[in-house]
Computed example of a mutant assay.
Amino acid sequence: MGSSSERDNIEEIHPFYYVLMKVLFKVWRQKPKKSPQLESYQLEVQAGNTILECLNRIKWEQDGSLAFRKNCRNTICGSCGMRINGRSALACKQNVGQELEMISASSNGDIPTITVAPLGNMPVIKDLVVDMSGFWDKLQEVDPYVSTKGRKIPEREFLQTPDERSQLDQTGNCIMCGACYSECNALTVNPEFVGPHALAKAERMVADSRDTGTEERLDNYNQVEEGVWGCTRCYYCNAVCPMEVAPMDQISHLKEEILDRNDAQSSRAIRHRKVLIDLVKEGGWIDERKFGVYVVGNYFKDLEGLLSLAPLGLRMLTSGKFPVVFEPSEGKKEVRSLIERVQNYQLSDKALSR
Rank of each mutant, 00 (worst) to 15 (best):
Y221H: 06
A186M: 06
A246S: 12
D211S: 13
E216D: 11
D249E: 10
Y221I: 13
L279P: 08
T188V: 09
E256C: 06
R217T: 07
E256Y: 05
N262A: 02
M243Q: 15
C234R: 00
K255L: 13
I277L: 06
M243L: 08
L218D: 00
N222T: 09
Y236A: 12
V280Y: 02
D219V: 12
E282R: 14
G227C: 02
Y236I: 03
S209K: 12
H272V: 02
C234M: 06
L276R: 12
R233D: 07
K201F: 12
N185R: 07
I270T: 05
I270Y: 00
A269E: 01
R271S: 06
V245H: 10
C184Q: 02
D260I: 09
P191C: 02
V194C: 11
A239D: 15
K201W: 14
S266T: 10
I270L: 08
M248I: 11
G213I: 11
R210D: 10
N185L: 12
V240M: 02
E282I: 06
K274F: 06
A202G: 15
Y221D: 01
V228P: 05
C184V: 01
V280N: 04
A202I: 13
L187C: 03
F193I: 11
L199T: 11
A200Q: 04
S182P: 09
P247V: 01
A269T: 05
N222Q: 00
C231Q: 00
N238R: 08
K255N: 07
E256W: 10
D249F: 13
V206I: 15
L218N: 04
A239N: 15
M248F: 14
A207P: 13
I251L: 01
A269G: 00
V245W: 07
H272Q: 04
E226T: 15
R204T: 12
P196D: 01
I251Y: 05
I277A: 01
N238H: 14
D278C: 00
A198L: 09
L254V: 09
V194M: 04
E216M: 04
M243V: 06
E203M: 14
H272E: 02
A269Y: 04
W229L: 12
P247G: 00
L279E: 03
S252P: 00
R271V: 02
L254T: 08
P247F: 04
A239M: 13
E215T: 15
R271M: 02
P242V: 07
N190R: 13
G195A: 02
D278S: 03
E226L: 08
C241P: 14
V245C: 13
S266Y: 11
A207Y: 13
R233S: 15
R271H: 07
V228M: 01
E215R: 12
E216A: 11
R273K: 11
A202D: 08
H253C: 06
N185D: 08
Y235V: 12
N190S: 10
E226D: 07
